[in-house]
Design a binder for these strands. Sequence first.
DNA 1: GTCTATAAAAGGATAGAC
DNA 2: GTCTATCCTTTTATAGAC
Lengths: 204, 204
Amino acid sequence: MVLKSDTEKIILEAAREVFSEKGLAGARMQEIADRANINKAMLHYYFRSKEKLFDEIFKAAFAEFWPEVQYSLLASLDIEIFLERVLSSYIDLFMNKPYLPIFILSEVNRDPDRLEKLIKESGVNPIAIVNYLNKQMEQGILKKMNPKELLLNIISLSIFPFAGRPLISRMLFDGDDDDFKNVLQSRKQTLIDFLQPLIIKNKA
Amino acid sequence: MVLKSDTEKIILEAAREVFSEKGLAGARMQEIADRANINKAMLHYYFRSKEKLFDEIFKAAFAEFWPEVQYSLLASLDIEIFLERVLSSYIDLFMNKPYLPIFILSEVNRDPDRLEKLIKESGVNPIAIVNYLNKQMEQGILKKMNPKELLLNIISLSIFPFAGRPLISRMLFDGDDDDFKNVLQSRKQTLIDFLQPLIIKNKA
DNA sequence: GTCTATAAAAGGATAGAC
DNA sequence: GTCTATCCTTTTATAGAC
């Protein structure tokens, strides 16, 4: 791992901003240079091409996209704690990095091939979570359903509000993004309530 | 309403394809012309500029994005029928037009201003639905919660799987899009089951 | 209405001085 | 490492013949 110079880090941050606002196709090298307060030639000096610079940004964003899950600790985890952690870490993540969901979603959509190698490199493995949910169902702790679909639902509820933020903010909250932000923040709890009926209570 | 010539319709269809695959910034007038089997100059003859052509496409897509809801009939509608209709029409819509969600989401994100006038023109009014849900809660038919958030959840569960299709297909279904497609199709029913606990059953 | 040819501008990339 | 100047390709847009 080669240490990154300050200039390099400044460029990466500027590039991150521009690429996540405009996408690969819409981003301009000039704008990245401007935001980094450096010259356009420097971008090429450090990263050779727009495509290569984008790859760095996308790779980093993709890595950030998955909340830290200790797969090894999953096996014995209480379902309520599991939910609490997953929802909470997703919401915290996207509160701080609101650009992540739509950036990943759009760019994966534009070029699904880019995804292939990243999946292997990243070591992310949702199937472990699916297996965990499946076991909870077999043990009668969770209501029985397709475990992949349950995970899909949890992810949908966590991510979509952020991915559709400008749209939802205007359609449902009259453009008052602060109002919407409060709702998003409180979802750590309200989503747990929403999903509560899936958990089968022991009547002991 | 001026009648559209055949050429115009062919152009619009080609433009729709290219813009929804590549986005405004990534789309090329040449590619649109090629797919329409006409000359590039014709695009400008009919639509003046790329931007104007895009506006037509976006406007049409935005209009399609909202399932037909008879707001006037809402007041007296049974909640189970309501859910069935909303979920069913959303899923049918996106099954047939899978490009819609991510197209709208990305472009709204890139340029939120474009949205403003469209919202007014479109006559879409989610607040009517929010009010409907609210009334159901007051009447003890639906579990009490923030009605805007309930609508947000319903929409999240309906749209996100389509917006994230390439990602989810690869992460959860091993890239087997047919497998995923079956899950999406069956969601008309499984989502109703999933939301069932919100409905308070009368014990009469 | 449709085409070919071309203008005009934008944007990515490089050369070369310092 | 950093800058200025410039190249060269791509892409939007228009002129003008048919």
